[in-house]
Design a protein around this nucleic acid. Structure first.
Lengths: 213, 213
DNA sequence: TTTAGCATCGGTACTACTACTGATTTTTTG
DNA sequence: CAAAAAATCAGTAGTAGTACCGATGCTAAA
């Protein structure tokens, strides 16, 4: 954003939706709609041609879906912000979108002000995730280890284990945690007892297994 | 949000920061500051007592850090929205915050309008992630990139490195390779020189990076 | 053929970690 | 509040790894 006008491209395979968005945005003076695509391929081409500040992408589209298109756009035009639009409150899509580097994800039933808010935030470089999606995001992301086998590790032990897996020697761990080396050794020993892990490398494997990376 | 007033609790271990927030929020009529905590434990207690709409948590605090406090609050009061405040643009924290179910994450250098925006969005159930954090979030989940760097390791060194990454101590490596421990140490040392890797854990990371798993 | 790199081994000194034992204080919990 | 769990620290002894020093053959390239 060099100026305060947001130059944007929109992409959705449904004419009706595209027109609806068009109407909503047309009345906003700070938005300059520079292109409209009806599939992912067109969206990518339009972005290449116009280098917009922001592209509003429907998730499900023919040729290239929104996520695929976003990957390409992000790679070629890192400064172009990406805002996803979806009918599905599917957390997998949100996850993937964030992984790609999206700056927002909203459902198609957003109100006009909420949508404009999302556009402003996304173009400013922040990330906006719509209300119902936040919930599914919270409920979903336990893919990082957790549950299953915690080996009964305490918080402190987990912290130490995480530090070990980052390659820190006990001395450094002690310093960053503001405790003595002996205490770190204590924790380390109980970690080994609980997990059955041997040396630092084995403990690292267990750490990644538990998602403490 | 049953009414349009946002009842909130703030928590930060630095008086100065807390006062700054207080001043910022006091002038906003739609915000009702119902409590201030100076550590995680107090934050949890205040939330239990006041059941606020939103709690603004510093990430690093004594007793219980912000993330730990948030876990407890989310569990006991699922309707209380959580907004994190941090000095670190560390993506790990953001990841963890989202996992817990946070509704926002901003850096301590946020402008007042941005902060108020984040508060409004979070309390409405959406999720707001501040500008610089979005970048680290995007960059944090890189999809397997091979560096094609060999570091100029010799065959023997690669074998040793692979063994190290399997968690074998030098003694075992020496036995399975039918060489002396000193030789393994020699190889190990040149591996460290060439790769810049420090201890066993670091070497393991390099090994996986080179696909020697 | 000389140079260079590789692989092999040894000495010495130091640091990091392991394996116990035992203790105090704080925190959590019933 | 009392019991249990967690977190803190210390002693001692042993093992593993680090960081240097050096040496000997062996092979492949200049």
């Amino acid at each position: 954003m060099q100026t305060n006008v947001i130059r944007m491209v929109i992409a959705d395979d449904h004419d009706l939706v595209r027109e609806g968005i068009h109407v909503r945005l047309a009345s906003e003076s700070y938005i300059d709609l520079v292109g409209e695509a009806k599939n992912g391929r067109e969206a990518v081409d339009l972005c290449r041609a116009h280098k917009p500040d922001l592209v509003l992408l429907d998730v499900s589209m023919p040729k290239l879906n929104g996520l695929e298109a976003a990957s390409i756009i992000k790679e070629e035009l890192p400064d172009t912000k990406i805002l996803f639009l979806s009918v599905y409150d599917n957390d997998e899509y949100v996850q993937e979108a964030l992984r790609i580097g999206a700056n927002g994800f909203v459902l198609k039933d957003v109100s006009k002000p909420e949508m404009l808010n999302a556009i402003r935030l996304a173009s400013s470089g922040a990330t906006y995730i719509g209300p119902r999606l936040s919930k599914s995001l919270a409920a979903s992301t336990p893919s990082r280890g957790h549950s299953a086998q915690d080996y009964g590790l305490t918080n402190r032990e987990k912290q130490v284990l995480a530090a070990i897996s980052r390659g820190m020697p006990n001395k450094e761990i002690a310093e960053t945690m503001n405790i003595s080396v002996r205490t770190v050794e204590s924790h380390r020993m109980s970690i080994r007892e609980k997990t059955g892990g041997g040396n630092a490398v084995m403990l690292t494997k267990i750490a990644t297994e538990l998602g403490l990376t």
